[in-house]
């Protein structure tokens, strides 16, 4: 190797490495890539996240079992706060708190759906707002590294709205005992999952 060869090999190595590191790649923690754009990515992200879906289902069951006023409160307040909190999460980013908190909405809302207590409408509205804040922020903060998180948050919110509306309507229309019991069993299973998830987190 000549005197020129050593600097040349360094130069080649440096350029090759620069080429490797310059290749752009998405950070895809917790994300879904559908190929249909960020709106559908956000929707799919929600649909593939049971920790986000199950509390929404439990809230919808709880609201539906309590009557039409409660169902309306859930359908109105949950998506609105989910959207706003999602945008906040998008701006601020992940908070880095313990994963054990994910079990809290599952346990609380699942237990309420299973026990079916009578609460005032403002109670259901408050629960909807709290879930919207927690769930929206959780999903919204995850796409903060993506190209268009705004549309992803909107997509997730739309699916949350459709889910809470459909489940609440189905439970409202449940006339027979066994259909209402089935809904409560789903609530019980949700709470049970939450308790186990808490155990996993504290393990």
């Amino acid at each position: 190797m000549t005197a020129h060869a050593a600097p040349r090999s360094h130069w080649v190595a440096a350029m090759a490495t620069l080429g490797f590191t310059a290749v752009p790649a998405d950070a895809s923690a917790h994300l879904m890539t559908t190929g249909l754009g960020p709106l559908f990515d956000g929707a799919a992200h929600f649909a593939m996240s049971p920790e986000a879906m199950l509390p929404v289902v439990a809230l919808a069951i709880f609201a539906g079992l309590n009557g039409v006023a409660h169902a309306r409160a859930a359908v109105q307040f949950l998506p609105a706060t989910w959207l706003l909190s999602g945008f906040l999460g998008l701006l601020v980013g992940p908070l880095g708190i313990s994963g054990a908190y994910e079990s809290v909405p599952l346990i609380v809302l699942g237990s309420l759906a299973a026990a079916n207590p009578s609460v005032p409408v403002w109670g259901t509205a408050s629960l909807s707002i709290l879930l919207g804040i927690a769930g929206g922020y959780g999903l919204g903060s995850e796409p903060s590294g993506a190209r268009d998180g705004t549309l992803a948050v909107l997509g997730a919110t739309l699916v949350a709205f459709v889910l809470v509306a459909l489940v609440a309507a189905a439970v409202l229309k449940a006339r027979w005992d066994w259909t209402r019991i089935t809904a409560r069993v789903v609530g019980s299973w949700t709470a049970a999952c939450g308790v186990l998830l808490l155990g996993w987190a504290l393990r």
Binding site: S111, I181, R184, S188, W189, A191, A192, V195, L196, G199
Partner: peptide
């Protein structure tokens, strides 16, 4: 069936 999964989950916890 409503209460058993919850109590069993407590045992699991």
């Amino acid at each position: 069936p409503v209460t058993f999964p919850l109590v069993m989950a407590l045992g699991g916890f």
